[in-house]
């Protein structure tokens, strides 16, 4: 299990790195509090006018919020920092060092950074999710919980794939920073179940940027509205994406090796 070992090693180093900057923890706490406050205010505002948003009650929507924040924490803790590092290193040539190591380049590129203070978002997301759940059902069915966990993992994999495509794009287009900002904006759409959006947007945030799979599908699981077919589609889509992006990454790497001076 080479991959897991490398993952664990860099996790340790990442944690050691982050512990040097305790101030980051305070900043993160503040940032999470503001995000959460704004989100809850919006939610309160929406439900002061209606009791039902496209079939989702306030408590159910709280679950969506919670998952969006939680997944956002995972993205910012792991996926985004690693991928932005790749983009930066393609630019300044430091990726060379990763490529001269006797380890799979994709694995190495994906696990070298970790922002542990983002755990604040993961926890606050989980708490919001807990509140939401407490307003719906007495206790979560085991099957729903399992489906939720699976959907969450699949969603994270898809988001990772999306980011890897952006990072790999840096092999051709050196300046990929705009794409990063674009993602932050688009990710906000995940605060609401994708069903409320018009078709073109729904389609985009499902298949172009897989936010629907990362947030809405897990939310459907915990609110007992997930159909098993959706989970199967998610699994298939995640697999195809993973294989496809791995191929794309290798293709890009070849191009990097062919072009950098």
């Amino acid at each position: 299990m080479g991959t897991v070992r490398v993952f664990w090693l860099f996790f340790r180093v990442g944690v050691m790195n982050e512990l040097q900057y305790r101030m980051n923890f305070v900043v993160q706490l503040l940032q999470s509090a503001i995000t959460l406050g704004v989100a809850l205010a919006v939610l309160a505002l929406v439900y002061s006018h209606t009791d039902d948003l496209n079939g989702w009650s306030q408590s159910e929507l709280l679950c969506v919020f919670g998952i969006q924040i939680l997944m956002g924490g995972v993205i910012k803790a792991y996926i985004q920092p690693n991928m932005t590092r790749v983009i930066g290193e393609v630019r300044d040539g430091k990726l060379d060092y990763a490529l001269t190591k006797p380890e799979d380049a994709q694995v190495l590129a994906s696990v070298r950074e970790v922002r542990i203070w983002q755990v604040v978002d993961v926890i606050s997301g989980a708490v919001v999710l807990g509140f939401g759940l407490s307003g719906i059902v007495a206790d979560l069915a085991l099957l729903d919980a399992a489906a939720f966990a699976v959907a969450l993992v699949l969603g994270a994999v898809m988001i990772y794939c999306f980011w890897l495509v952006i990072a790999t794009g840096a092999f051709w287009i050196v300046n990929m920073w705009h794409a990063i900002e674009l993602f932050d904006g688009v990710y906000l759409t995940g605060r609401f179940p994708v069903g409320i959006y018009p078709g073109w947007l729904r389609y985009s945030v499902t298949f172009l940027v897989p936010i629907a799979f990362a947030v809405t599908v897990p939310a459907e699981a915990v609110t007992s509205r997930l159909e098993w077919q959706t989970l199967v589609i998610a699994a298939l889509f995640a697999t195809v994406l993973f294989v496809g992006t791995r191929w794309f990454w290798r293709f890009g790497l070849k191009r990097y090796s062919g072009a950098s001076a």
Partner: peptide, 11 residues
């Protein structure tokens, strides 16, 4: 460029 070809970074 030569060093990079010898260390496997460039084809």
């Amino acid at each position: 460029t030569t060093l990079k070809m010898l260390s496997g970074l460039l084809y």
